[in-house]
Design a binder for these strands. Structure first.
Lengths: 115, 115
DNA sequence: ACACTATATCTACCAAACTAAATATAGTGT
DNA sequence: ACACTATATTTAGTTTGGTAGATATAGTGT
């Protein structure tokens, strides 16, 4: 993985918020992310596409839903960067509120039992 | 430190190359970086200004030269990100060639004896 | 077939940022 | 005072990338 596109992907607030949630939930569908971040669905989809394009996330289709997860085959140094980032900023806003909003979302599909 | 400006700073090739060199040389002046990267001096200065603005580097003036170093007071998670990046991509091009070009530079000023 | 939900794509607009080149600032030595 | 070196800033042009909104695709249930 090239560092420049990686860091560019990490330089946007919407993408970082998605990644921060994904880092703690193994997989989430678009509607969960849309709810947690309270942003328009096309915007979320657009940014998830960007994350997928650089290889940071992958997706899985199940029925009507598409579940995203952090790519489990990331190079170790990339994984370290993600972990360091979540450690460093995960308690701040808006990340904390996003996690809270997600946990309070009613009618969540599938993978609720994930870590 | 905010993550978005940090990652945006890391998303440019010129800035990454400067940081990679600084990560292994404690301090370097602008002319050393300009020589190592073989880029126009105003371009190097401009990008160093960007790195300084987000707090990734600081500088020290000595006579005609301005020495840059990685900010020694970076938050731990930011330091982890820098180290992971250098570990992950430091051996690749153009970083390896930059280090080589720096080591072969004649008439280097001041801090040559740095690690 | 139809309505509904979930997601993706497309279009147009706008702002941020990289680049190149010229020029300005500032320190040094003669 | 002048020439020279090192560095920073400014300007203009171009591109990249984010946003909003509309629309398309696709799966589900009736």
């Amino acid at each position: 993985m090239q560092p420049e596109p990686l860091f560019r992907a990490l330089s946007d607030s919407t993408r970082l918020r998605c990644l921060a949630l994904l880092a703690e939930h193994s997989e989430l569908c678009v509607c969960e992310l849309t709810h947690a971040l309270a942003l328009p669905q096309p915007k979320i989809s657009h940014h998830l596409g960007g994350l997928r394009k650089v290889g940071l996330v992958c997706d899985r289709k199940e029925g009507l839903w598409i579940y995203y997860r952090i790519n489990p085959e990331l190079p170790q140094w990339v994984d370290s960067i993600l972990k360091a980032t979540v450690t460093g900023v995960g308690q701040r806003e808006p990340f904390a509120s996003d996690a809270q909003a997600l946990s309070e979302m009613p009618n969540r599909p599938g993978g609720v039992c994930s870590a």
